[in-house]
């Protein structure tokens, strides 16, 4: 059922944006400079907004309401990558994660805007402009922290070493994703990975950072999560689940 593969794909995209936005929102009020309390909150807001658009499409495909999908699913039912569920860490960690994700979103969106599915095309077009700004912002940060002081450099390198393998999970295809690629609904993840690799390596190297050589095993299934997701969901869902689904908040 091609519609099912599309729904699965859209859910994975929505979950990635949502969980990343959720993690980034934890910086609001705690960022290293006031300007970033504002800017990083804005990036988090955009990610949540993009998640909303994808969840709406998921609802069109499956009938499942976004708030039910977000607030009444257990960890094993989430389809985000482990990359986005890891705790926010220090500023170097959050920035490096956002940068790696932004490059992925950019190479993905520049192809999704040509999707043969009109709704995917429409949403991708809406989102893409904002993502270009995100990438500009995080690229600047990577450069400044990578080339700033010994300490900032060391923190960035550590973050990159930790995150690199996790980021590669973004390019593991879902079951039946081939059908969607064949119909030009979504781009081939192998092509995306090459484009991502080229862009990240160029910028990270120019920022004085080494690309990790030893790659741990990449998490294979999006149903598999770290223990951090369960904790995150406990926090995320506690108020909503104090009442039955359908009670208005």
């Amino acid at each position: 059922m091609p519609n099912n593969s599309l729904a699965n794909k859209i859910l994975s995209v929505a979950d990635d944006s949502f969980i990343l936005g959720h993690r980034n929102s934890e910086w609001a009020g705690h960022a290293p400079i006031l300007e970033e309390d504002i800017a990083f909150a804005n990036i988090a807001l955009d990610e949540l907004g993009h998640a909303q658009l994808w969840y709406e499409l998921y609802q069109e495909l499956t009938g499942a309401e976004p708030d039910r999908v977000i607030f009444f699913r257990s960890a094993a039912e989430w389809r985000n990558t482990q990359l986005v569920e890891l705790p926010k860490g220090d500023w170097a960690f959050s920035m490096t994660r956002q940068f790696l994700f932004d490059v992925y979103e950019n190479v993905s969106l520049e192809r999704l805007v040509h999707s043969t599915n009109p709704r995917v095309q429409e949403i991708a077009t809406k989102i893409r402009t904002e993502e270009i700004y995100h990438l500009r912002h995080t690229s600047n940060w990577v450069k400044r922290l990578g080339l700033g002081t010994d300490e900032s450099h060391a923190r960035m390198q550590r973050a990159l070493d930790e995150l690199w393998t996790y980021a590669l999970q973004l390019f593991v295809p879902l079951e039946n994703e081939r059908e969607l690629i064949a119909e030009n609904v979504v781009p081939d993840l192998g092509i995306l990975r090459d484009a991502w690799q080229e862009k990240t390596v160029t910028h990270l190297s120019a920022s004085g950072l080494q690309i990790p050589e030893n790659i741990d095993s990449v998490p294979n299934l999006r149903a598999e999560h770290t223990e951090h997701l369960a904790e995150l969901l406990q926090d995320l869902q506690q108020v909503a689940r104090s009442e039955k689904f359908g009670v208005e908040w």
Binding site: S25, A41, A51, Y55, F71, D235, L236, Q238, A240, W249
Partner: peptide, 14 residues
């Protein structure tokens, strides 16, 4: 923000 009970509330609170 992390505990807001709907997506809309989460976005408006952030």
């Amino acid at each position: 923000i992390t505990r807001a009970p709907t997506l809309r509330r989460k976005i408006t609170l952030l």
